[in-house]
Computed example of a mutant assay.
Amino acid sequence: MNTPTLVIEQQFTLWVLYFFSYAFVGWVWESGYVSFKKRQWVNSGFLNGPVIPVYGFSITAVLVLLHPVENNLLLLYLGSAVLITIIEYVTSWLMEKLFHARWWDYSDIPLNFQGRVALPISAFWGVGVVFVVKVVHPVVARFVTHLDVKYGIFAAIVFLAFFMFDFGFTLANVLAMGAATKRIGDAIDQKKQELRDSVDTAAAKLESEHGWLDDYRQHQGDMAKLPNLSWVQRRLLNSFPHLQLHDTKTPPKDIADLAELLKRRRKQGK
């Protein structure tokens, strides 16, 4: 193998490994933060594996595009804040168009734009990226170099293979989720309306936190024609606290609660 080819192969391997390293670091940070808030472990990534690709894309983009100014902290901070804000906005827009859902929403944060990005969040990411570049990256670089020396391009190919399988599996589940959640959401809305239109005791039941769900527990036949949600679909409903489904007005938490009840009922019936 000639020298130019070796250089290309090594650069390809290094950047693929950097991408997955920071996708993993981002997953640890995001899942840890959400888990701390919920007081239970939550895989808050879109994919099932321990990676969040937007973090991998963001940090590798910073390392490539802002390398000339990495020793100027002010320019590194400003450039990182702008670059990651653009990536976050584009990612939010694409995911919403592709999957008919808003996966995060900054509408409650001051100085936000369309709820997709917000100035305080961008300022935070600027500080975070400066910390990553100056403190975390030297450690990651040593780890990536070790993998490259020991396994070479084989390591990059293995990571890419697992990533593509995970992405395809998740994509199939998400594309099927819209129709299923709409059916469940419509059923929940209908159940709530039935309780509103019925006697006072039923109306009082509706006012309780999960009165409509208690009614489903008592009338199992109402669930017979509802679709099952896969564990991937149920995980996504629970992992994104600000998820907004465009195909139904029913809150994702209500859909997740009924889906969990459906799973338990059908498991008991086997």
Rank of each mutant, 00 (worst) to 15 (best):
Y151H: 14
V82M: 02
V117P: 05
F57M: 05
L66E: 10
F163M: 08
A118N: 03
V158L: 14
R102H: 09
H146W: 15
L147A: 07
G152M: 08
S58F: 05
A156S: 15
T60P: 06
I121Q: 05
V117T: 11
K150C: 13
V133Q: 01
D105F: 00
V64Y: 09
L63F: 07
F154D: 14
Y77S: 04
W93H: 06
I86V: 15
P53Q: 10
F143N: 07
V129T: 15
H67G: 07
G128F: 00
M164W: 12
L119I: 14
V90S: 02
L83N: 04
I84L: 13
F57E: 03
T145N: 13
L74G: 06
V62T: 04
R142C: 11
T91R: 04
G79N: 01
D105G: 03
S58E: 10
F124G: 15
R102S: 13
G128S: 02
L73K: 10
F159N: 12
Y77N: 03
I87W: 00
H137E: 10
I153C: 10
A141D: 15
V117R: 00
I87T: 05
I52M: 13
H100G: 00
L111V: 09
L119V: 15
R116E: 05
V133R: 00
V117H: 01
I109M: 07
G56Q: 11
L63Y: 09
V90Q: 02
N71C: 06
R142L: 14
V135D: 02
L160K: 05
G168L: 15
V69K: 02
G115R: 01
D148E: 15
L76P: 09
F131A: 14
G168T: 14
I121G: 05
Y151K: 06
P68I: 12
V129P: 08
V129M: 14
G115Y: 02
T91W: 05
N71A: 14
V149K: 08
G56V: 13
R142T: 12
D148V: 12
L83Q: 06
F131D: 03
L74V: 15
D105L: 01
K134C: 05
R102D: 10
L83C: 08
T91G: 06
A101F: 11
D166T: 13
I86T: 10
V129N: 03
T85L: 03
K134F: 04
Y77F: 15
H137R: 04
F154P: 04
N71D: 15
H137T: 13
V62Y: 02
L78E: 02
P53A: 10
E96W: 01
L63G: 09
G126F: 01
A161M: 14
H100M: 08
V132G: 00
N112F: 07
V139K: 00
A123T: 11
F113W: 14
V139C: 02
N112P: 09
K134N: 10
V127S: 03
K134A: 02
I87L: 14
K97Y: 11
E88M: 06
D148N: 15
V69M: 05
N71W: 07
